[in-house]
Simulated assay, not measured.
Amino acid sequence: MTTARLEVRPPRESDRARFVELFRDEDFMVFSPRILTESEAEARFDHMLAVCGTIPFGKQPVVELSSGLIVGYTGVDRIDLAGETWLEWGYRLVPEVRGLGYATEAGRALLSRARRTYPGALLAIIAPDNLSSQRVCRKLGFAFWKQAPVEGDLRNLYTLCAEDPVS
C-alpha cells in the first residue's frame, strides 16, 4: 500500500538486518521494557514474517518514499490478555520521523486492509505517559477502554472494531 509519503508492505527477508538493528536500538524501543539481544531481535523478525504469512495486516515495514528507508512498522500481532486472544495494533517509528504524521498515515493505510479482511475488534496497548501514541490511536478511531496491567505494567487499553469507519 502506498500513501502520499509512505509505503506499507509485508516484510521481506531483505528487511532483516534493518529490523535487527532497530530492535536493538534504545531510541526505537523507548516504550518497550528493554532493547533486544541480537538473537531475540532475529527471533522477533522471524515472528513478524510468520504473522504476516497468516494475517494480511500483521506488523509491516513503513518505508519513507523520499529516502527509501524503513522508518518503522505498523500492524497487528496476537496477544493473550486476561484469558482472551486479541489482535493487538501497534506501531513504532524511528525518532527522526516522529511527529510528522507518519504513524497516522501508515495506520490508516493498513487499517483499510484490516477492514476488508477482519470483522473483529482490535486492541491497542499504550503506556499511560505515551501521549503521542494515545493521540494517534484516537485519530485512527480507537476508543479508550480501560487501564489494566499488561505483563506487569499498568497500560491504557484502546479498542476498535475493524468494521468501524476511520474518524
Rank of each mutant, 00 (worst) to 15 (best):
G101Q: 06
L154K: 11
E21C: 10
A124E: 01
V94Q: 04
R138Q: 14
E96D: 14
I125Y: 03
T85G: 11
P95M: 11
T74C: 13
K139V: 04
A148R: 13
K139S: 11
R138K: 12
G72Q: 01
G99A: 12
A121R: 12
D129H: 13
T117Q: 09
Y73D: 14
D77Y: 07
L93G: 02
A124M: 10
T54C: 04
A43M: 12
G152V: 07
K139H: 09
V62A: 06
L123N: 00
Y91P: 07
R44Q: 15
Y102G: 04
Y73N: 08
A143N: 08
Q134P: 10
V20F: 02
E88W: 00
R155A: 14
E40R: 00
F23K: 00
C161M: 12
R98K: 13
G72F: 04
E21D: 15
T85E: 14
S167P: 15
T159Y: 06
L81H: 15
G72R: 01
A114Y: 06
T74R: 00
E84F: 09
T37L: 06
D27G: 09
Q134N: 03
W86Y: 15
V76D: 02
D80C: 06
G90M: 05
F144H: 09
K146G: 05
S112V: 02
P149H: 12
V8A: 05
G75N: 04
R5Y: 10
G120I: 13
T54R: 15
E96Y: 01
V8H: 02
R78W: 11
G141S: 07
M29K: 03
R138H: 11
R12M: 13
V63L: 07
L110E: 02
E151T: 03
R138G: 11
C137T: 06
I125M: 10
D25F: 03
D164M: 13
T37P: 09
T159V: 13
E64I: 02
F19H: 08
R24K: 11
L123E: 03
C52W: 14
P56F: 09
C52L: 02
S133T: 03
S133D: 07
L140N: 04
V97P: 02
L122E: 05
L122M: 12
N156D: 12
T85P: 04
R113Y: 05
G101C: 06
R116A: 14
L123S: 01
D164S: 14
P33L: 08
V150Q: 09
G58M: 05
V76R: 00
V150P: 12
V71G: 00
E64Q: 11
P11K: 00
D164R: 13
R9I: 05
R116P: 00
P61W: 05
E42W: 07
A121V: 10
T54Q: 13
A17S: 15
S66W: 08
Q147L: 05
T85D: 08
G90Y: 03
L100K: 14
L154N: 13
A148K: 07
L123K: 00
Q134I: 06
Y91N: 08
Y158M: 04
G68S: 09
C137K: 00
E21K: 08
S14N: 02
A162S: 15
D153L: 14
A17Y: 02
P165Y: 10
P10K: 10
G75Y: 07
R115T: 07
V71K: 00
P165T: 06
G75E: 04
S66P: 05
L140R: 05
